[in-house]
Design a protein around this nucleic acid. Sequence first.
DNA 1: TCATTAAATTGTT
DNA 2: AACAATTTAATGA
Length: 237
Amino acid sequence: MPTDTSLHQRRRPLTESELEAIPWIHLLKPEERQRAADDLKVAEAAPGETLCRTGRPATYWFGVIDGLLKMSTDNAQGQTMTYTGIPPGGWFGEGTALKREAYRYNIQALRSSRVAGLHVDTFHWLLDHSIGFNRFVMNQLNERLGQFIAAREIDRMNNPDARVARSLAALFNPVLYPGVGEVLRITQQELAYLVGLSRQRVNEALTTLATQGSIRVEYGGLRVLDLAALRSQLVAS
DNA sequence: TCATTAAATTGTT
DNA sequence: AACAATTTAATGA
């Protein structure tokens, strides 16, 4: 079982292009940007590898450079409940970083991923010095709140096609996941894990959505043609 | 660069 | 859960 320390040891500084792709880096002033760049590290996460575990002290604020992560918790019955997937461009953990608490969820890589980490101390320094950074974090919290409210609605839908559509729409959120763009690299199996349906059923739903013209199914990924149509999928069965 | 092979992913039952 | 078909990735000439 890989540990947090093994991930810790495989860190390296970010390349210039990786740095440029970070959504909040452009909101910083030169001095602030320098400080962030000096601290930022990336690590490769193997499929199934755990990046943070419930109860561990939060030492980093994380961002997905490439790949796909899963946010989940284990309940009292030992079952795993998945909250959301985190595609490229997504940053998470600011809640626990703000309060300097322990992680309240597990983060696992669904496939081979590159993850950036900003130390909590630097995270706080940026909060204390950069208005742009504060705006980003506030916007992030607000947008995420909207997603979780929407997720509750999704959970109550009994129509699998609608569940898949709305879950997909969440993953294509341009504010939370600006790294995704037009095509989301995700296999139908991975999507099935996230939505909580069988791969067969997800495949069927994707075919339906493709027929409706809101997405296009590609090998190893999905292309969104009409994000609004995905979002407005009805709850009815 | 091309052809062959293995692995991954999809579509279907 | 299993299977065949398809697409991609890896390998070596």
